[in-house]
Design a binder for these strands. Structure first.
Length: 546
RNA sequence: GCCUCCGUAGCUCAGCCGGACAGAGCAGCUGACUUCUAAUCAGUUGGUCGCAGGUUCGAAUCCUGCCGGGGGCGCCA
């Protein structure tokens, strides 16, 4: 097996060189230079160089030096240390050190991307095969998925793809709430509709209930009806998710948790820990002392177990039975209240609570109304997919941070769906495919055995495009680490933009400039590789023509 | 009342583990199609980063307090 190609990102390279210089200075020991990792970034303004560091200002305070003078000192030492790629170093007003580079590193980067291909580019093993579970959607099987569910489906699935890319062993799970009160209510709603009665209070209503009721042939028993309907609805949910390119690895049953011994075992363990007490005929978990805002009822006075209890047993199952190292739950903001309880429970089981990560997504609502299955006021994800398109639907939730609440104006979304950035990104891909297709026709003219001279890529557009590509790995790591796939979207838009500009200014296929053509084809290929990987993470398809 | 998310250009939002003149898309205005696909490109108008303090050489970014909006504070799930 060949080792994957290596390439040290420029910021890491410079940071390492600066660090060497700092260590050689033998500064005050209290500074612990070993721990200092100088931050080297691409400055916002091009007039501030290709890369820049604020290390002189950060350290000057601690060592009691004038930041400008210290920066100058570092600059001199850096110049003596024979840096690769660096043309000039400048020190600017408050104490920034700016680096101006030649473009050799960009050609090396390009070669690295080409050698890596889609399989290895931006594949960083920070996960070290950590077993991580992501639970998302987990919508009750009491009705079809609505648009809000679709948002978490896109988010969770892309987060999973991102973490896989970074070397995590990821399992995507959907917790199926196939028991309890809502299944009973679902059964009641079905039977009521079948017998042409009013839907029960707090019951489910809508066309899908009427249609299910029409087909129901089982006994007039609410549990039978509820269970039957939930199974059919779940099948429908699976199909809708597949249509959206979301495939779960695991469907885990609440009924299994509650009936399969998990709750009994959990209760026993919590009892042993002295965290259980009775009050008013109910069984309580003393979760307040573990950081919850109050104690929680696990078993109601009528003997039924609460949803919370099932959820606690479920999370115990995740960590202790199935041995996940890390669990990420993706919840809507309306479930925010569960966080403290679950964290408390996990702590009780002796698990580091930071291994339970709960991502709270703010609410997705319709103009003027909340989405709710019980009220029948919601837009079906299925319909949304059909009208807006799968790729646009898939990308929309990945454009913003999940901390941002979203109010959807369905008519506006429909009328502007063609403006969705997804087409902009895909169009870049289609253009690349088109170029490559034509390049094949010119094969005889273009091909030769000489090495490709990437140094011919010197145009401003070419350099800019290479610079965007150079940031891909960092973006992937940052997005995975911060659990923010929308950062991939932002970068991909930038890549597409840079490519479109390049496409406009630089004719790739030019029979009178064979060498340049070959160099540009390499750049196009590198763009294609990174674009393909980023779109794949976003769960968007790669059209070869549009 | 307590917890939590948000408040940045006309609109939708990036940026938020501190950095150099605050960014993008849409909308508006101007210009580019006998071209490797114009689903594109180039240019341009537009902002006291909710308000007030504080920390800092430096704050949209961190801290505190207000104001405004969303969500949550069940023996519902």
């Amino acid at each position: 097996m060949n080792n994957p190609p290596q390439f040290t990102p420029m910021n890491k390279y410079l940071s390492g060189e600066i660090r060497k210089v700092l260590i050689s200075l033998k500064l005050d020991e209290s500074l612990k230079v070993d721990e200092v990792q100088p931050k080297v970034e691409v400055p916002a303004a091009e007039s501030h160089g290709d890369y820049s560091t604020n290390i002189a200002m950060v350290l000057s305070r601690k060592i009691n030096k004038n930041p400008l003078e210290f920066a100058e000192e570092l600059k001199m030492l850096l110049l003596q240390s024979d840096l690769k790629y660096v043309n000039t170093i400048e020190v600017v007003k408050p104490g920034f050190i700016n680096f101006y580079l030649n473009t050799d590193w960009l050609y090396e980067l390009c070669e690295y991307v080409l050698a890596s291909g889609t399989k290895n580019v931006a594949k960083k093993d920070i996960g070290k095969n950590t077993k991580i579970q992501i639970e998302f959607v987990s919508a009750n099987p009491t009705g079809p998925l609505h648009v809000g569910n679709g948002w978490w489906a896109a988010y969770g699935d892309s987060l999973a793809r991102l973490l896989k890319r970074c070397g995590y062993n990821v399992v995507k799970e959907y917790y199926v709430n196939d028991t309890g009160g809502q299944i009973r209510v679902l059964g009641e709603s079905i039977l009521a509709a079948k017998n042409n009665l009013e839907a029960p209070e707090n019951g489910y209503r809508g066309d899908y209930i009427d249609e299910l009721a029409k087909d129901y042939r089982g006994p007039e028993d609410i549990y039978s009806a509820g269970k039957w309907a939930a199974e059919l609805i779940l099948e429908n949910i699976k199909l809708t998710l597949l249509k959206m390119n979301v495939e779960f690895d695991s469907w885990y049953s609440q009924n299994y948790i509650e009936q399969g011994g998990a709750t009994a075992e959990t209760l026993e363990e919590l009892s042993k820990l002295g965290l259980i007490y009775e009050s008013d005929g109910a069984t309580y978990l003393a979760s307040e002392k573990l950081g919850d805002s109050r104690d929680r009822v696990l078993i109601k006075s009528n003997g039924d177990i609460t949803y919370t209890f099932g959820d606690i047993a479920y999370h115990r199952d995740k960590f202790l039975k199935r041995k996940f190292d890390k669990v990420i739950d993706v919840f809507g903001a309306d479930h925010h209240g569960q966080v403290a309880t679950l964290k408390a429970a996990v702590k009780a089981f002796g698990i580091d609570e930071t291994n339970l990560e709960i991502q709270i997504g703010q609410m997705i609502s319709l103009v003027g109304a909340k989405m709710s299955k019980r009220s029948g006021n919601f837009v079906k994800l299925e319909d949304f997919l059909n009208e807006v398109g799968v790729d646009a639907t898939r990308l929309m939730p990945l454009m913003n941070s999940i901390d941002q609440a979203t109010v959807l104006d369905i008519d506006l979304v429909k009328s502007t769906s063609m403006e969705n950035p997804v087409y902009y990104m895909q169009y870049a891909y289609a253009r690349i495919c088109s170029i490559e297709k034509r390049a094949k026709l010119l094969k005889d003219v273009i091909s030769c055995n000489d090495e490709i001279n990437l140094h011919l890529l010197s145009n401003y557009r070419e350099i800019s495009l290479l610079k965007v590509i150079s940031e891909f790995e960092d973006v992937v790591l940052d997005a995975a680490d911060s659990r923010k796939p929308h950062k991939i979207t932002a970068w991909t838009k930038q890549l597409a933009s840079s490519f479109h500009s390049f496409y406009h200014d630089c004719k790739v296929l030019d029979e009178s400039e064979i060498e340049l053509t070959r160099a540009r084809l390499s750049l196009v290929k590198a763009t294609k590789i990174t674009l393909a990987v980023s779109l794949e993470i976003l769960g968007v398809t790669l059209p070869e023509h549009m």
